[in-house]
Design a protein around this nucleic acid. Structure first.
Lengths: 152, 152
DNA sequence: CTAAATGCAAACCATTTGCAACGGA
DNA sequence: TCCGTTGCAAATGGTTTGCATTTAG
């Protein structure tokens, strides 16, 4: 009897219910994604997958990330540079980001006050929110220090 | 004596102080931008400019939009489709957006509560914010009605 | 056996850049 | 004159698609 994590079960259910096939590539990509941390681009994930199996193609990683997003395992977000980034979504609290425009560093935060206010605003406009993205751009504390030091 | 709007003066000052030249194309693009409303892509603005002068190139519109952003006349924002959009910034209150993923319709809103909370969060992380982008995606009230009606 | 998946290459699309001709200052 | 500007075409970069081959069910 195969022992499955919740995430893997969700993925396989999604495949089955959509009439898709369970392939070794898809399972590998899911495994590598689950083991990873942070905010990966498709390229990042592709590089990680290639270590385990150099035969897996870029395209398959892309298409699998789409599947992962569809079934709620991954959250897709654009964080300022041109590319899409993917974070774990299952069993992970929603959060927003402070983005340092100097070094690209990310800080995650969550504010109940902001979440609630957003819902109020949506309700006021009879708008049915599905998701949101709040990004605060600026200079992180490290880069502020670096700038001061460099200025001497 | 030439009568200038504030915006035109700001633009011309910016050109002069940066050692750039005042050209007919740049002035035309500024004029068309100022006359426009809403959230224009570079392509949108290019089309509007072409009506007045078919010789102006796409590239020049792009490059001028960059100048307008630099001197605070335009705000650059990505609203979910792939492209950059430009809004008036001078003398316009900052605002955020509800974005309908069905019809693309935009609703602008402003929340003092959210703005203040963002500043608190940034301060907490010793983060120096320069700008932010809050986008709430979902279905606008019109599209909710349309969906119900279509389902009959 | 059949429809879906894979992986390569090519297409796509918004944006940016190289460059020769042009034009303000 | 000199150096920035223009506008075309070509390059870029992330993402997506067409298609012949392979593979799961």
């Amino acid at each position: 009897m195969e022992k499955l994590t919740d995430e893997k079960e969700i993925f396989i259910d999604h495949l089955r219910s959509a009439g898709f096939k369970r392939t070794s590539q898809r399972e590998l990509i899911l495994d590598v994604f689950l083991k990873s941390e942070g905010h990966l681009s498709a390229e990042d994930l592709y590089q990680l997958v290639k270590v385990e199996d150099p035969n897996v193609g870029f395209t398959t990683v892309y298409r699998t990330l789409k599947l992962l997003s569809e079934c709620g395992l991954a959250r897709e977000e654009r964080l300022g540079d041109g590319r899409k980034r993917y974070e774990h979504k299952y069993n992970h609290e929603h959060h927003d980001h402070l983005i340092c425009t100097d070094c690209g560093n990310l800080i995650e935060f969550f504010s109940e006050v902001i979440e609630k206010k957003q819902d109020e605003i949506a309700a006021h406009f009879h708008f049915l929110p599905t998701h949101h993205s709040l990004r605060i751009f600026g200079i992180c504390s490290d880069c502020q220090i670096r700038r001061k030091t460099a200025g001497r």
